[in-house]
Design a protein around this nucleic acid. Structure first.
Length: 383
DNA sequence: CATCCTTTGAAGCTG
DNA sequence: CAGCTTCAAAGGATG
């Protein structure tokens, strides 16, 4: 799998042998994608059974060397899948970054516009993101990682009402005001892509009460529930300041999305639209294959986006670390299980608690003995 | 209602 | 430091 150093995708475009992938018109892309999807689907559907039987074990997977080769040589997959008549066209791909549909709506590309001297729009500005908003996804944010609050620079913001800023209770570093500088991108890099400012003046945004710089921030979710973009809409509306308790619950700052996640987020709706599948697990399998089939240049775009995402995230939340959320999910599940087992801390305590012989008896409920719990139940009837 | 599934990549943790 | 684990998104399926 092509790996670009997270250090910055410096080797972007270094691979000439890679087959370029869709920088053309929507139509050709559609055809390509459809063909791709059909094969993906057929592939997936036929392989889902096989994979469930074989993929899980390396030995079984070895039984399908072709599959392995496909995985190990994604470019080959792509070449195989790509009809000959298409190759000519796509080999002219402009490798310029962030062209085409994939990035027309990406927040990073939009960011600098509000700070443009005259707010001028780029030639891409009217481009509507090709990704249809999926259910539950904010219509404006197929790839928008940060909410307006992150771009509302407090008093620096020339547009945003201050009350919006103060509601979330999320630490917002004052230096976010230098974000525009952050987006002064190096020549030849991402910065070449003129931000598509059409996003900021999109009627949807205005009608939803969002500021022209308003970008919902999926990285922040309230502690209680699943992330819902509705939340952002609601949170935008000026509400009579509710209970104090809400303030106490600090929103969770989520990890920045990695390259593949960004790719998934963008392509999911497409895949769903092109096939009848709705199950995310299946969709993700397709997306995983497509990801491997992407040219290195295409992937590089996403690696670069992810890098920018991380940088922006760092700027917005200097103190944040992935450690903050580490173990939150699984730990909760584990703790639940342990609670239900009323797992004592140590075998000694456990044995004492259950009146067992400290030398000879297993303590079934004890974590230390847990591995042997099943056996012990038979041997010692320890409960 | 919570968790699983499924993917890749980044980051944290562990020995 | 290598290798393992967890979490990011998504939404249907499942317990």
């Amino acid at each position: 799998m092509p790996q670009l150093s997270s250090g910055g995708g410096d080797d972007l475009g270094a691979n000439d042998e890679m087959i370029a992938f869709k920088d053309e018109g929507e139509q050709e892309e559609k055809i390509q994608e459809n063909a791709f999807t059909e094969r993906d689907l057929a592939d997936l559907k036929s392989s889902l059974v096989n994979e469930s039987e074989s993929n899980s074990s390396p030995a079984a997977a070895a039984a399908d060397p072709e599959a392995i080769r496909r995985v190990q040589d994604p470019q080959r997959v792509y070449q195989e899948k790509l009809p000959d008549h298409m190759e000519d066209g796509i080999k002219h791909q402009d490798t310029g970054m962030y062209k085409g549909s994939a990035y027309s709506g990406y927040p990073f590309l939009m960011l600098s516009d509000p700070y443009l001297p005259n707010g001028s729009m780029s030639p891409l500005s009217n481009k509507v993101p090709v990704v249809q908003p999926s259910h539950g996804v904010h219509p404006l944010t197929p790839l928008i990682p940060y909410s307006n609050e992150h771009f509302s620079h407090g008093s620096h913001s020339p547009h945003l009402p201050a009350d919006i800023n103060q509601k979330q209770g999320v630490h917002r570093p004052s230096q976010t005001s230098d974000i525009p500088g952050f987006y002064s991108l190096p020549p030849g890099g991402v910065g070449q892509i003129t931000p598509s400012m059409g996003w900021f003046t999109h009627p949807l945004m205005l009608s939803s009460g969002m500021h022209t710089t308003g970008i919902p921030h999926p990285a922040i979710v309230p502690h209680s529930g699943k992330q819902e973009m509705d939340h952002y809409d609601r949170s935008m509306k000026p509400q009579p300041e509710p209970k104090r308790e809400k303030e106490a619950k600090k929103p969770t700052i989520k990890k920045p999305l990695n390259a593949f996640m960004l790719y998934m987020k963008e392509m999911r709706a497409k895949v769903i639209a092109e096939c009848t599948l709705k199950e995310s697990a299946a969709i993700n399998q397709i997306l995983g294959r497509r990801w491997h089939a992407l040219s290195r240049e295409e992937q590089a775009k996403y690696y670069e986006l992810a890098r920018k995402e991380r940088q922006l995230h760092m700027q917005l939340y200097p103190g944040w670390s992935a450690r903050d959320n580490y173990g939150k999910k699984k730990r909760r599940a584990r703790e639940k299980q342990q609670d239900s087992n009323s797992d004592p801390a140590s075998p000694k305590k456990c044995r004492a608690r259950f009146g067992l012989n400290q030398q000879t008896d297993w303590c079934g409920p004890c974590r230390a003995c847990n591995i042997l719990h099943v056996l012990s139940r038979f041997l010692f009837h320890c409960s």
